[in-house]
């Protein structure tokens, strides 16, 4: 800044030097430069919007911060508090319940649907669209509709139906044991369409000659399913298991919207980890540090579950 005359002298020279250097590059090198120039945009975007906040969350998990004041270092206190918090362990179990119930059920149903849909020619497109529709529907709208379905009489569809036959009411959302599966059901249903489409793509990719050969050998349908279809669908299954596991481990919108007045209730019986994070961060006290620690825990869980699944499903 102080020495302006010098920099004025320098800049034309620098500019011509740069352009000379550009002209000396080969076409291949120029392509690389251009590629990096375009790639820089998403890279900068990702660094600023994804990687920086992610790193920041790790740092924040060792601090205390209520959004208003300054951050203070607290070491591992957030993690220790979390370990000693009984609610965290309930939430931890819930999160895995969503995963362990949700993933197999949704995969079995969607495979069943895809397997049979693949054989149907009549109104094939319409049926497929019907299965896909819930996937395109807003989770919030869907959750609220199901929330009303589940109400006791006089407004709940399910309970009104039961009442007509004199069957006692089921307290879907007001029960510590039934609430979690009740909340999970629409989430499974919503994800079905996507899984069906992926399974069908996988089924279509299996060469029909295998089946023809098997049929010539007189193999039963059941054996064809076990010996040909499922083994050849393995890449699809691996993808869907990992994908839907991550989805169920991160479940939030269905739970939050179906239990807004008592988020994750009753008695935390439906609360998943993401909802706990949300409440800790954006509840009355804005405990950002504790929420960041919970986020790190969730990150580690997702990482381990994904790695384990990839390992198990790939090796065999």
């Amino acid at each position: 800044m102080a020495d302006t005359s010098q920099s004025d002298d320098m800049s034309p020279g620098a500019r011509s030097g740069l352009s000379a250097r550009w002209h000396r590059l080969s076409i291949r090198q120029k392509q690389v430069v251009w590629a990096w120039a375009f790639l820089a945009v998403p890279i900068v975007f990702y660094v600023v919007v994804r990687f920086y906040p992610t790193g920041n969350a790790f740092v924040l998990s060792f601090q205390e911060w209520n959004l208003l004041g300054s951050r203070e270092w607290v070491g591992f206190e957030n993690y220790v508090d979390l370990w000693n918090d009984p609610v965290f362990w309930i939430v931890f179990v819930n999160t895995f319940e969503y995963l362990i119930i949700g993933t197999p059920i949704s995969l079995v149903i969607s495979f069943f649907v895809a397997y049979h849909l693949d054989k149907v020619r009549f109104m094939h497109g319409t049926i497929r669209a019907l299965y896909f529709l819930p996937f395109m529907t807003s989770a919030v709208a869907m959750a609220w509709v199901w929330r009303w379905f589940y109400q006791p009489v006089p407004i709940g569809v399910f309970n009104n139906f039961l009442a007509q036959f004199g069957i006692p009411q089921i307290e879907f959302l007001q029960s510590t044991s039934i609430a979690l599966p009740a909340v999970l059901a629409p989430a499974v249903w919503a994800g079905l369409g996507f899984q069906v489409i992926i399974f069908m793509a996988g089924l279509r990719a299996i060469p029909p000659t295998y089946y023809e050969a098997a049929r010539v050998d007189g193999v039963s349908n059941w054996t064809m399913l076990w010996e040909i279809t499922l083994p050849l669908l393995k890449p699809t299954i691996v993808f869907l298991v990992v994908f839907s596991s991550i989805g169920f481990l991160r479940i939030f919108d269905h739970v939050f919207n179906m239990t807004t007045n008592n988020p994750g209730g009753p008695l935390n019986s439906t609360k998943p980890l993401v909802l706990m994070i949300y409440e800790t961060a954006f509840g009355g006290r804005s405990q950002m540090g504790a929420a960041a620690a919970q986020t790190v825990v969730l990150f580690v869980i997702l990482l381990i579950v994904s790695l384990v699944q990839l390992r198990i499903l790939r090796d065999r």
Partner: peptide
Amino acid sequence: RFADESAQRQLMVEMVERVQLQ
């Protein structure tokens, strides 16, 4: 004078739920 109104409300919610559900 609440320290955290939503958390303190939640405790009241659970207080009744323990009686009614458990």
